[in-house]
């Protein structure tokens, strides 16, 4: 039943929200023109001189920027891969647990880190990996000399990737647990009657049943190839680990806010947004084609 009167109501309901999006999301999109200009605040966005691809050329010429892109890819791809493997393994393991009260306790505990901010966790992990922290205390018992892991280029990436997995694996497992719950119990019984042991049940029943979810989540993760996690790295890094830990987002922040190279910073950010846009679009298209996934 279409009625113009109702449509007026519908449009009115959209107006405020869309207005916010126009002001805070759409208008800034036009602001990316400063990536092609030498933006001087006093001259304004329109008054500043056009310089074409100058900032992009500089970006690709700088060894610093190339390193930042490499760090971003290494950290983000490691996170993507581990953030699929670990939650899937954990969900399967949890499904095998038969002591139900313990199951509930473990679930409660592993979901918690997802809701804590990186600011707080940054303080906690700095304690743990500090010169006098738990890690050095434990390794000291095995005769390993203490090290400052947070400012060492050989360990920083590992800490970033590991603590990210620590924070997200529990929450990430929810979707796989939901998929496992949907498996028909008869399948397991049939497998058991045929003499399948635990490993065979996992390998031939559980994994194939959640394969679709794994593929879907991997496809959607494609959009994050350039997202190495700003909040986390920003709260945990220091100049000493820029060689291995500086990523596009932290670089854009330092160039833009600290060094006030507005146009250059925007150019680097635009490069990232552009590629991410293509990747997300590709991932949604793939997810839609192969898993019937739709965003709306």
């Amino acid at each position: 039943m279409r009625s113009v009167k109702n449509e007026i109501y519908y449009n009115a309901m959209m107006v405020i929200g869309i207005g916010f999006l126009l002001v805070f999301s759409i208008i800034p999109m036009f602001g990316v023109i400063i990536a092609f200009k030498d933006f001087v605040p006093a001259k304004g966005m329109l008054g500043s001189a056009w310089v074409g691809l100058k900032h992009f050329n500089r970006m690709f010429a700088l060894a610093e920027t190339r390193n930042v892109i490499r760090n971003t890819l290494v950290i983000a791809i490691s996170k993507i891969v581990l953030n699929i493997i670990v939650p899937v393994s954990f969900a399967i393991l949890l499904n095998e647990l038969k002591v139900y009260p313990v199951k509930r306790v473990v679930q409660t505990v592993v979901y918690l880190p997802h809701f804590l901010s990186w600011v707080i966790l940054g303080i906690m992990f700095t304690n743990i990996f500090s010169y006098t922290g738990i890690v050095n205390q434990i390794l000291g018992k095995f005769g390993v000399p203490p090290q400052m892991y947070m400012i060492s280029n050989s360990s920083f990436r590992g800490i970033i990737i590991g603590t990210d997995v620590w924070k997200t694996f529990g929450y990430g497992a929810i979707i796989y647990l939901a998929a496992i719950t949907n498996i028909d119990p008869n399948t397991y019984e049939a497998a058991a009657i045929d003499g399948a042991g635990r490993w065979q049940r996992i390998w031939f029943v559980t994994l194939p049943s959640i394969q679709g979810t794994i593929v879907l989540m991997s496809t959607l993760a494609l959009g994050n190839v350039l997202n190495a996690g700003f909040d986390q790295i920003f709260t945990m890094y220091s100049p000493l680990v820029y060689p291995t830990g500086d990523i596009i987002d932290t670089y854009v922040y330092r160039m833009g806010i600290t060094k006030m190279q507005y146009s250059f910073s925007t150019a680097v950010g635009l490069f990232k947004s552009g590629i991410s846009f293509l990747l997300i679009t590709l991932s949604y298209t793939l997810a839609n084609k192969f898993a019937d996934y739709t965003i709306f």
Binding site: M14, I18, S25, F30, G31, I34, G269
Partner: peptide, 24 residues
């Protein structure tokens, strides 16, 4: 029933996919 619905939807999803960045 709501002819403009998809236009709004695309606009909203577009803001999820792309942003103007820090400085703008």
């Amino acid at each position: 029933v709501f002819r403009q619905r998809n236009a709004y939807m695309w606009l909203m999803v577009f803001t999820m996919l792309f942003n103007g960045g820090l400085i703008p």
